[in-house]
Design a protein around this nucleic acid. Structure first.
Length: 568
RNA sequence: GGCCCCAUCGUCUAGAGGCCUAGGACACGGCCCUUUCAAGGCCGCGACACGGGUUCGAAUCCCGUUGGGGUCACCA
């Protein structure tokens, strides 16, 4: 039976190849992340950045960064610096060498706005904030939906307002009809009806463009092809496509990501959640201890009016210097607060690649059972169709488990030392900063099984402080050394002599000696190990004792035992 | 409240009409290991929101109900 062999003509092959490539090269995917610099990056923003970055890297496209600093009151240079640092930490490298700052692009926006005004597609509006609020509440009282539509001003009125030099905004005269667009995640035909249309502000009275306007103009200029952002922007998209149509811009592909929810409240995860938690706790403490705001003010040293205002108003937030004072007063530790900022995760010792892995799973899945992925794997597996529609609660337990696993898997290599160094760079109070790479490697090994880098740090600080500075915890002394007529102290005194004989001093020999000691006395290892632990570390919890003693060395071990015994 | 989006274990999810007695991960419970705290091993518990259709057959398609979320700024 003759096999039907087909010869493909090389020219045909070339043509097919070219056909395939041409449209590809002319539609290189360009994504962007466009945060506003008002503080550290939070996980919601990080997830948005991640998805945009992944799409660009997966397709060999570009990922651009733009700073939306049009809110003069809230944007700061410090925040921009923090934002960039967080993005670098996460490993999202952007492809525009020159960062785009919206605040530096006013002439460009104004030229476009002038053009719109001259075409009758935008106009100056002179209402004050108070007038607008009044109009809104009037509508609310009448149970009517408020929609701003162009007021009919006479030429006379306009002349008068202008001669008075009245402040004004510029609004976009949005054509009243239905707006529809296709969403790569939510499907076709998203949008709103004509009844929802209103003339939104495109230039504020301080001369800055609004978000809606800046986004549209800049996305066009930067050649953005795909906009991935949170679902809270879904309806904003109608404003954006209206503007694009008026300006003759092409429409990018939109993909709206599920919202990340606070597992406790079920609402959108917000920077304010930490503050809320402190306020809630403060309220409880005051009720339980019958303390007044004045008492709290006295304890924290904060002004009473400031404190009462904060207590009463959910919208008010403590600033970074006030927060720790109130936390201390109401017995909250940093670890009790939910991490929300990327910086918090860094400071607590999560690995950036793990945070990314976890964040990627919030609203996206590669399909099947696949969960643990390196950055490289995320890049190669990422695709728009893996993005889900349903909102996701931010569950820290799973992140913690991922981090534990990743640290355990990599705890012997240079990556973990590097990670620990990075952790220490944002935790300047740790004595481990003075440790050598070799010491750090040992600390990490001794603490194998830790969840976050904060744990080996916490549990190993005693190794890096002078013997004199070891602080003995009273409850540990009581429970381990003083209880039962000082059995523990007695064992400690006796094992001290045995330890002096150990030669050479290493974990194996120390173990042998201590175990021999236990056998001889017919007591359990715990009866001896715990007293030693308390003596050298000050607490009942430490890394495994034999390794700990090897690390400390004989002299320091004996010195700490002596000091502990004499303090009883 | 208007408009919009969504709906599988407690949580994150797999699932594209028969591969589903619904899979995985985390959490949780039990046992084991153990010098503390952990980590680890083994086993277990646990979901298609509800009601109607369509179909030989529905977690999967359609409609409704309920529930949750988002959004209604001169913030982004």
């Amino acid at each position: 039976m003759a096999e039907h062999k087909r010869i493909v003509h090389p020219l045909l092959l070339f043509t097919l190849y070219a056909l395939l490539l041409l449209p590809m090269s002319s539609t290189t995917i360009v994504t962007r992340f466009a945060p506003s610099p008002t503080g550290y990056l939070h996980v919601g923003g990080a997830r948005t950045a991640l998805f945009n970055w992944l799409l660009a890297r997966h397709t060999g496209g570009k990922f651009l960064l733009r700073i939306e600093d049009t809110d003069l009151a809230r944007s700061t240079e410090e925040a921009t610096r923090q934002l960039l640092e967080d993005l670098r930490w996460l490993g999202f490298h952007w492809d525009n060498a020159e960062l785009v700052f919206q605040s530096k692009r006013l002439p460009i926006y104004n030229a476009v706005i002038d053009n719109l005004i001259s075409r009758g597609l935008a106009y100056k509006a002179y209402e004050t904030n108070e007038e607008l609020t009044a109009q809104r509440s009037q509508a609310e009282r009448a149970k009517r939906q408020y929609r701003y539509r162009r007021p009919a001003l006479t030429d006379e009125q306009i002349r008068q307002y202008e001669s008075e030099g009245r402040p004004h905004v510029v609004r976009f005269a949005m054509a009243v009809h239905e707006y529809r667009f296709d969403d790569a995640v939510l499907g076709p035909n998203q949008g709103f009806a004509a009844g929802e249309v209103q003339d939104f502000v495109i230039r504020k009275s301080d001369g800055m463009p609004t978000y809606h306007f800046g986004v549209v103009v800049d996305d066009e200029e930067m050649g953005i092809t795909h906009v991935l952002r949170g679902q809270e922007h879904l309806l904003n998209t109608c404003n954006h496509i209206a503007l694009q149509e008026a300006l003759g811009y092409p429409r990018p592909i939109y993909a709206h990501l599920p919202v990340i929810l606070n597992p406790e409240t079920g609402e959108k995860l917000s920077k304010r959640d930490r503050d809320q938690k402190i306020r809630k706790r403060a309220g409880e403490v005051m009720r339980n201890t019958k303390k007044s705001p004045a008492d709290l003010a006295a304890i924290t040293g904060l002004p009473l009016d400031r404190l009462t205002e904060w207590l009463a108003n959910d919208k008010k937030q403590l600033d970074l210097s006030e927060q720790p004072k109130v936390m201390k007063a109401v017995g909250l530790r940093e670890a009790d607060l939910p991490e929300i900022m990327v910086h918090d995760f860094r400071k607590n010792g999560y690995l950036p690649e793990v945070l990314n892995n976890f964040l990627a799973l919030l609203g996206w899945s590669p399909g099947g059972d696949r969960e643990r992925m390196s950055m490289e794997e995320l890049v190669s597996l990422f695709s728009l169709d893996g993005i889900g529609k349903a909102n996701a609660k931010f569950n820290r337990d799973k992140l913690l488990a991922f981090n534990t696993e990743a640290c355990a898997a990599g705890s012997t290599n240079a990556r973990m030392v590097e990670a620990m160094r990075d952790f220490l760079s944002v935790n300047p109070d740790s004595p481990l900063r003075e440790a050598s790479d070799h010491d750090i490697e040992q600390v990490l090994q001794m603490n194998h099984g830790f969840h976050i880098l904060r744990e080996p740090d916490d549990k190993s600080r005693f190794l890096f402080i002078p013997d004199k500075q070891v602080e003995y915890q009273t409850d540990a002394l009581d429970k381990v050394l003083r209880k039962n007529e000082s059995q523990g102290a007695k064992a400690l005194r006796e094992v001290r002599a045995a330890l002096e004989q150990v030669e050479p001093w290493n974990a194996g020999q120390v173990e042998q000696a201590i175990k021999a000691f236990c056998d001889q006395r017919q007591i359990g290892l715990g009866k001896v190990a715990q007293p030693i632990r308390v003596a050298v570390s000050g607490s009942a919890v430490s890394p495994p004792i034999f390794e700990t003693l090897e690390f400390l060395g004989r002299a320091r071990t004996i010195a700490r035992i002596d000091r502990c015994l004499s303090s009883l």
